[in-house]
Simulated scan of single mutants.
Amino acid sequence: MLFGLPDFAAPGVAAAFVLTALRVGGLLLVAPAWSAKSVPMKLRTAVLVVFAVLLLPSALQTADRATLVITPATFLAETAIGFALGLAAALVIAGAEFAGELATNTIGLSGAAIFDPVNNTQGAILGSFMQLFALTLLLVAGGHV
């Protein structure tokens, strides 16, 4: 055990690492902050590996190492679980952004659009504010955990 990391040659540890990385990878595909075009793919890959290594000890405590096997079913299941977690957060953020856009149109501020350099589009002022506000509330409430 070097630097608190488990021995990857031990039975079941490598499979647990891959399955943990699959779940984190599914999450990073659609998570609100990490799925943006402005986040480079190398950074996402590094975050995926770091998160998988950090979550591996807790995954090993709850898993039966002898029965951990990587099959197409477990591959798809772990990716789908991570995807569902990220999609839930993305839906909350998108709902807040849509509510801000509706409020912008209702108030009459639809002519005052701001430029979004990430998506190369113009967006509603309150939509961008509500998106960032919802992301902040999600993080403060512990939604990232």
Rank of each mutant, 00 (worst) to 15 (best):
A14M: 15
V145F: 10
S128Q: 13
L91P: 00
L27H: 08
I125W: 06
E78K: 14
I114K: 07
D116H: 04
V39Q: 10
A113R: 15
L126A: 06
T136M: 02
A99T: 08
S38A: 15
G108Y: 10
K42L: 12
K42A: 14
T104Q: 15
G25C: 08
L126S: 04
R23H: 07
G143M: 05
L76Y: 04
I114L: 14
T62V: 14
V69F: 10
A15L: 00
L135Q: 10
A10N: 03
L85S: 02
A59I: 02
M130T: 13
L28N: 02
F83C: 09
A36Q: 15
V24G: 01
H144F: 12
A84F: 09
A73L: 14
F17C: 08
Q122W: 11
T62Q: 13
A36P: 00
A46V: 15
A33K: 12
A80Q: 02
A14V: 10
G127L: 06
G142E: 08
S128A: 13
L135Y: 01
A73C: 00
I125T: 12
G95C: 11
K37P: 01
W34S: 12
K37E: 13
L135F: 03
D64R: 12
G123K: 11
F3W: 14
P117M: 07
A46D: 07
V39D: 04
N105W: 06
L137S: 00
L55R: 08
V53C: 12
S38F: 10
A89S: 14
F8P: 04
L43Q: 08
E101W: 09
Q131E: 06
V92F: 14
L2I: 12
S35T: 08
P72N: 10
G26N: 03
V50K: 02
A96H: 03
F129H: 01
D116Q: 07
L85F: 13
A16N: 09
V30W: 10
T136Q: 00
S58H: 05
V50T: 12
D64Y: 04
S128D: 02
T136N: 00
G142A: 07
F75K: 06
A31V: 01
A9Y: 06
S58L: 03
T79Y: 12
L139T: 10
D116Y: 02
R44T: 03
L28G: 01
L60V: 03
T67S: 15
A103V: 13
V13C: 11
V49W: 02
I70L: 15
I125H: 00
A63V: 05
G111W: 09
A46Q: 06
K37V: 10
F51G: 00
R44F: 03
S35I: 07
L109P: 05
L43E: 01
